[in-house]
């Protein structure tokens, strides 16, 4: 027995080295592709860099200090938190019932699933452009409909102020996040065997009880994946806000990524923009790490 064991480890060891050697080129390539841009962004953020990418003096942390002294950056930061929390929260809350429904056996389920997934295939920018047309105060479809229904008596410019523009942007964000989220959750639901439910029904569990005490706990890993991926996605989501309002009026709908774009490509401040993208990277890294740790801890507790 023992010698057998040793043999296998010996075998493993003799296999490890060639294996490592074999993957070394692709490993080096990956490190180069991922590592070099990160190095370059860090380098840029610590220097004074002009519009043309020419590096001037070492600037230390002044680029970061400039950002934290910039009220638009601070406001955009909090707005990004609001944007991410509401879009991801809304998408998850709406996707759970959608996924549960699509998991039921009913006539035309295949078509229903396709309809829910279909918007995924349309680019975000296109979706946003269509919404911009629909929301136009003077000739948009939405105002025309509300006008005909007698709800409005004059044109309303939905995108003219934060109070209407940002909630609309959040709603569109939720809408476009549903296909992906529902797909992930549906995958989770279909992995739960049906006989558990049968057993619970025989024991007298109500529909709500089955959902609350069986479906939700069993779905937990899928919910976690959906939350983490959605947060990363929505936090960095550019097209909806850019197409609808460009962060206007008066920067009131800017989130970090739209302000980042302005800094880098409109104002030509590549150094501050590099610092900002590092801050965004750090926020997402901390969030993801914290989330994974918390999820593991609760799993251990559960077990």
């Amino acid at each position: 027995m023992r010698s057998d064991e040793r043999k296998t480890t010996m075998l493993d060891r003799t296999r490890t080295l060639p294996a490592l050697l074999l993957i070394l080129p692709s490993l080096a390539l990956s490190i180069w592709i991922i590592g070099y841009p990160i190095y370059d962004v860090v380098y840029t953020s610590l220097h004074e860099v002009n519009r043309f990418g020419r590096v001037r003096d070492f600037a230390g942390l002044t680029n970061f200090a400039k950002l934290f002294a910039d009220p638009i950056f601070i406001a955009s930061l909090w707005r990004t938190v609001l944007w991410t929390a509401t879009v991801v929260g809304g998408a998850i809350l709406l996707s759970i019932p959608i996924a549960v429904m699509l998991n039921e056996d009913f006539y035309g389920r295949g078509i229903a699933r396709v309809i829910v997934m279909l918007p995924w295939a349309i680019s975000l920018a296109m979706t946003a452009i269509v919404w911009r047309w629909s929301l136009n105060g003077q000739y948009g479809m939405i105002n025309a409909t509300l006008f005909q229904l007698g709800i409005l008596d004059g044109p309303v410019e939905w995108l003219a102020s934060f109070d209407t523009a940002f909630p609309i942007e959040i709603a569109i964000g939720i809408l476009v996040s549903i296909p992906f989220t529902a797909t992930v959750l549906l995958g989770g639901l279909s992995s739960i065997p049906a006989d558990v439910y049968e057993a619970a029904t025989i024991d007298g569990a109500t529909g709500w009880q089955r959902f609350r005490y069986m479906t939700l706990p069993l779905m937990k890993p899928f919910l976690q994946i959906a939350i983490v991926l959605n947060v990363i996605n929505v936090f960095n989501s550019f097209p909806i806000i850019w197409v609808l309002t460009q962060g206007e009026p008066a920067n009131s709908t800017d989130i970090l990524v739209t302000y980042l774009y302005k800094l880098a490509f409109r104002y030509g401040r590549l150094d501050t923009a590099a610092a900002m993208s590092l801050i965004m990277f750090a926020i997402l890294l901390v969030f993801t790490a914290a989330y994974i740790v918390l999820a593991r801890r609760s799993e251990e507790k559960g077990a």
């Binding site: 105060g137 003077q138 000739y139 410019e157 003219a160 102020s161 009026p249």
Partner: peptide, 21 residues
């Protein structure tokens, strides 16, 4: 002016003129 001008970019405004509004 047209209501809520912060909702009108240059093209929106020019469209109003082209439509005779």
């Amino acid at each position: 002016t047209q209501p809520s001008p912060t909702g009108s970019n240059r093209q929106d405004m020019e469209s109003l003129f082209k439509q005779g509004r």
